[in-house]
């Protein structure tokens, strides 16, 4: 059923690769094409619902040797990382699309090399892509070019590193963020760029980053 969707994409983008696993249809496209492919699916296949943007770091995909057990594998030993062959393209970004009308789903996959982690944003097509792209940026450090407000979503701005990358040490400690003085809310402008108001340094959504018309 969903094979038709893959064909639809391949008709326009001949170098797109289709694959399937357990009934999930995947089409892998080049990074430059992703906006066009998603727009094509959205407009011609009525895939109006963007379920999720997920990303995978393939660094240890083949080389991971431990079996199960939390005790056995709390941390990838340093020597294992050293010898790891550089997997390229290392990152995959998966857009899970769905058509409510036709009840079809399709995953658009983009593969990224670790030296050039940039994907064009699809926020003009799906508003829900806003937070999902921020989430992926937050967790993997993949930059979405053209995103209106590419900030960390779940973590705080002082966080060092990208936790869902496979080479992020599990037991790494983050530096403590000093607490700033709470500005006087009524008299006198506070330190934030918006004048008196919320202490900006503590937030990762400062007002200065928000276009007032971005949400409407």
């Amino acid at each position: 059923m969903s094979q038709a969707l893959v064909d639809l994409v391949r008709e326009r983008f001949p170098d797109a690769k289709g694959s399937s696993h357990r009934g999930d249809e995947v089409v892998t496209v080049r990074r430059e094409q992703v906006v066009d492919v998603v727009a094509l699916l959205r407009n011609q296949a009525e895939m109006k619902l963007l379920r999720q943007i997920a990303a995978v770091d393939l660094l240890t995909f083949a080389g991971e040797s431990t079996g199960g057990g939390a005790l056995a594998s709390i941390e990838v030993p340093a020597y294992a990382l050293e010898k790891k062959p550089r997997v390229e393209p290392r990152f995959q970004v998966a857009y899970n699309l769905y058509s409510i009308v036709r009840k079809q789903s399709l995953r658009v996959r983009v593969e990224l090399r670790s030296d050039d982690l940039k994907v064009p944003t699809i926020t003009p097509l799906y508003r829900t892509a806003d937070w999902w792209e921020r989430y992926v940026f937050d967790m993997f450090g993949i930059e979405f070019v053209g995103h209106p407000n590419l900030q960390r979503l779940l973590l705080y701005p002082e966080f060092v590193g990208y936790p869902l990358r496979k080479d992020y040490p599990v037991r790494k400690r983050q530096p403590l963020v000093p607490e700033l003085d709470f500005p006087d809310l009524v008299r006198g402008p506070g330190p934030g760029p918006g004048g008196a108001g919320v202490p900006m340094s503590q937030t990762h959504v400062g007002r200065q980053n928000v276009d007032p018309d971005a949400y409407d």
């Binding site: 770091d57 079996g67 199960g68």
Partner: peptide
């Protein structure tokens, strides 16, 4: 939704 990736070992890859 759960987006699951397995690499054939005993643990979820992602």
């Amino acid at each position: 939704g759960f987006h699951l990736v397995s690499n054939g070992k005993g643990k979820p890859y992602a």
